[in-house]
Design a binder for these strands. Sequence first.
DNA 1: TGCGATAGCGCG
DNA 2: AAAGCGCGCTATCGCA
Length: 698
Amino acid sequence: MLRALAVSADNIIAPSESERLSVLAKLEAGAGVTVITGPEGKEWWGLASVEIVVKVELDGYVFKDRFGSRLEWALRNVGVSSGQTKAWLKKPPVKAKKQWQDAQELLAKFEAEALSAKPLIEVEYDVEIRENPPVVSLGEPIAVDWEWHEDTRKPIGFSCAELGRVVWVQCNKCNNGLGERRWFSDLVHARRGPPVVMHGGRGDLATQYLGDPAELTLAGSSIDDTMIMAFIMGEEDLGLKPLTRKFLGREPMEYPPSLASLPVATQARYAGADARNTLDLYPLFVNALIMSDQWKVYTEFEAPLVPVIASMEKYGTPVNMEKVIRYYGETVTREQGMRRFLQEEFGCDPASDAGGRGILTKALGFDPGTLDQRIISQYPSPIIDLVLYYRRQRTLRRSFFGTTIERWLVAGKPRNFVVYPRFNQAARPDKDDMLAPGTGRLSSSDPNLQQQPQDIRDIYVPPEGYLWWKYDYAQIELRIAAALSKDPTMLEMFRRGVDIHTALQDMAQAITGVRPERVLAKRWNFGKLYRAKLPKLIEILATDKQNRMHVDIGTARAMDKAHASMFPTYPKWAGQEVREARKRGYGLTYFGRRRLLPGLESTSDDVRWHAESAAVNHAVQGTAADVIKKAMIAVQPVLAEYDGHLAIQNHDELAGWVRESVNLVRFHRDMLEILEVTLAGVRLTVEGGVGKDWGNVG
DNA sequence: TGCGATAGCGCG
DNA sequence: AAAGCGCGCTATCGCA
């Protein structure tokens, strides 16, 4: 559950030897040399551990102590201040204090509820406790729910529920549950007809399935996921417990602190309840999806996607750590160089907000009122370029290289380091409200590989003996916009292979006599898709990462005129789409995925305007999300044939690895053939190829 | 001091 | 002008 990290002189990476030593001194003064880091534990997890958050940071490690004992946890939880807690830990209060008694009561409650066999809430059915997996019926759905250690991924056991029967199977510890995992793997792989149902099954599949979970999608195994179903239904809270409460009218049991340490009877009750609730939700959700016309979306590409995502999460993505460490050093050098320059030149430290504001004030002659790059980028000034350069380096250091190095240190500095990002199909895991992404896109987290800066992607590499591949859909949202709106000019351009950005450049030149840069036309085309107004378009251009441009209002008006005269049908379609969405109450993709938009009926202009934009966006971006999800499933047979793997989905792009000894020309041909599709008469073309890492392909 | 909210910035 | 959409991560702010 917990990982120990020994901190020594050579763990610490710093821009210079003196800084490294000063960091080390800080560390040793702070807390000895062995620190323990664990999962973020707000609840029971925090009891057993002394947690210290370790940051690999230029300005030294930051310590953050967590609860050192159960008593400390209890005191803090009943509202005792940290100072008082420290005092009481040293010397308990002599007189009876209310908070002290409250803490004792809380502790007793913990002992009673968490460490005893007594369940928190009695349930009205029995759970059969078994040492071996049961014989199950093939003729009816079965719900399965694994329990495993978050960190080691070692299984504790699993529960399964059939009609009128709930079973808890404890794993054989001698072989890490290999027998039980074999049974589960065979069960899901062979399943046809009545499905195996799980709630959030990708985790179970990624950790407990023996083999590559993607083969389940290839085999056409019958697997359903109530969390995904709830997401498609438009449910906001996707947790099993709230869904149980809402749809079954049962009060679900709260989860125990550490299932593994509990008596088997308690394990059975808790885990059995989850399986039983999942099984009972299933028919209700099938009905709800059919009634809301979402069954096709769910069965055609949402359900088959679950094992594919499990496969992506199981194998992760290897990282070239030598390169990361080198990049970190180079970035720090550039960052510190620019920081020192700005300090000497302006007498202000750009590392602090106040200092940054001081520099901007001196450079501009007035206080811009914000440090937001979206605003300050719009003032043409060489000093602002320098400030932004400094901030870019700082972001690279702390958000990308620093975190990767931290993960690597925590993992024990393995020679072959792999990150295991999550690809979230139905929920944002770090949000309390568990709101799902609106359009049906995936999101990525821990780390988010979808936000890695373009110029550092060469740190992501294939495993030994493999090459990296990457394919992305060219201008997919513009093409889908053309297909949906039937704008004749857009359709004609894509049909004849005319570059739409060049065409807009031509048109603007014809109107104004001045030819705008290509990047301007490009951003304009994308911005207009989602009803951006002129100031927003100017801002978008001013903050373009590759090519910051300062566009005056006159040019902007001319561009807008050019765009309107070229694509008159698109805004008409968007308006019609808004009206229809308002009538229905939801937006719709080409493949029929809904997005509920209650804001369409709002009396607030602001709220309604945003909901309308979201409706247009859902039609275009949501359709693109559907296309790429279908593609993730469609490439699996090709990948299987060439010993390949899908590792990353990045909205309009797929990437992964392929055995280097295969016929790569044929692989490339087969991938293009499977990925390129025609949607409502518009060809969705694909670019990409094979190379040595994510940054070097094609 | 702790924690939720916000600012700022990375990506499509 | 409050007026492109969709995300996640880090540090800082602001409040109690």
